[in-house]
Computed example of a mutant assay.
Amino acid sequence: MSNELTLQLIDTHAGGDVSRIVVGGIDPLPGTTVRQQMEYLRDDADGLRKLLLNEPYGIPEMSVDLIVPATDPRAETGYIIMEVMGYPIYSGSNTICTATAVLESGIVPKQEGRQRFMLESPAGLVQIEALVENGVVEAITCEGLPSYIDTYRASIHVPTVGEVTYSIAYSGGFYALVDATELGFSLIREEERRLSDCAHAIVEAIQAEKGFSHYTLGDVGPLPFLHFMGPVEQVSDHFYRSRSTTYVHQDVICRSTTGTGTSARLALMHYEGRLKKGDKLETVSLRETGFIGEFTNLHQEGPHQVVENTITGKSYVLARSDIVINCEDSLVECLGLHHILSSRHSGAD
């Protein structure tokens, strides 16, 4: 059996966050839904995530999206999201990147103008609207997950930081939302390291004090994310802008503002009476990139007012490549890979 294996990738970025889209080289995964296939990867085949996010192939700041066949006939294809913290069921930036990659690769044929289709994520079906101009994918609008406020303006003492006021939103994961100005930040690139250290301390303190439960999903694990919020500026009728940045893991600040972070902001601004149906918020990152969230509808789930929303952004293709994996390389860990890599690599006839 050859020890050399290959994967086909399309590298993309949205707002600066790089997503590696795996379009070939992986065998079909067990599971009757994309969610079940994600759980199989998480529990039995985590080697792919580790391989592509660690040296020598990647760095933890990247994400990986594996294209899989859709299990719902309404979807064109499915995708599984892999990040340094694990397997989120949804991500706005990863969805924008995946939608762009399936169009640019021809998995979904491009149509000039506005084009709508469905993708299947581990969270379920996602409606996509692509704007194609002169054959170029200029923008992707995707549904954000329904978002709500779990906790509003709680306070906690954080060692090395002091008293911190925070809110908790769910928008595909639980987010701590904190006012950047209250913590002394202007949300500029030079603050990136201090933002990461501060966020890590706050998240650890909240994790030690309490957990959070989704109204249908139940316990989805400890609080993973923190979103720093800058002042909100009204740009025009129904359009707002705010500097923002999202922490996702120790030493990892997203280069974009993140789609789920933007959805969380929409939920908070509605909760505070500052946003109405049809209003939009542009979040602007440390690197001056942005996503636009739109508050599209509202419904009630028990005690929670749930904000339905969309996220719009642009993704760029960085590279189309074959990744060569040599299992004899001492830096490469192939355990957890052989049983999902395409059978044409296994030496089978």
Rank of each mutant, 00 (worst) to 15 (best):
T77F: 05
E133L: 14
H227C: 15
E182Y: 08
A101I: 06
A99I: 02
D237N: 12
L298G: 03
P56K: 10
Q36W: 00
F239K: 14
N326I: 13
T245H: 08
I107R: 11
Q207W: 04
K277I: 15
S315Q: 07
F295K: 07
I149L: 12
H249E: 02
L268K: 04
L266I: 15
F174C: 08
S315T: 04
G135I: 07
Y57T: 07
T312M: 09
Q37W: 01
R35G: 00
A169T: 14
V284A: 01
F185G: 09
E39C: 01
P60T: 10
C97V: 05
F228A: 04
H200W: 15
T312A: 02
E143K: 11
D46V: 06
A154T: 05
T12D: 01
E308P: 12
P224E: 12
V137W: 03
R255S: 01
V102P: 01
T262A: 03
I340C: 06
E76I: 12
I96V: 14
G15K: 04
V235N: 07
A176W: 12
E294N: 13
Y271N: 15
V18A: 05
I323H: 02
D329S: 10
M269G: 03
G347F: 03
C97W: 01
V137D: 01
V132S: 04
L281E: 02
Q8A: 14
G230L: 11
L51H: 01
T310D: 00
D72C: 05
V203Q: 05
H214P: 05
V102R: 07
Q8L: 11
D43W: 00
T160G: 05
S343N: 10
N54R: 11
E143P: 02
A99C: 03
L318G: 01
S121R: 02
R344W: 14
E282N: 07
D279W: 09
K276I: 06
R274M: 06
K210H: 05
E143Y: 01
V161D: 08
H339P: 13
A201G: 07
E209L: 07
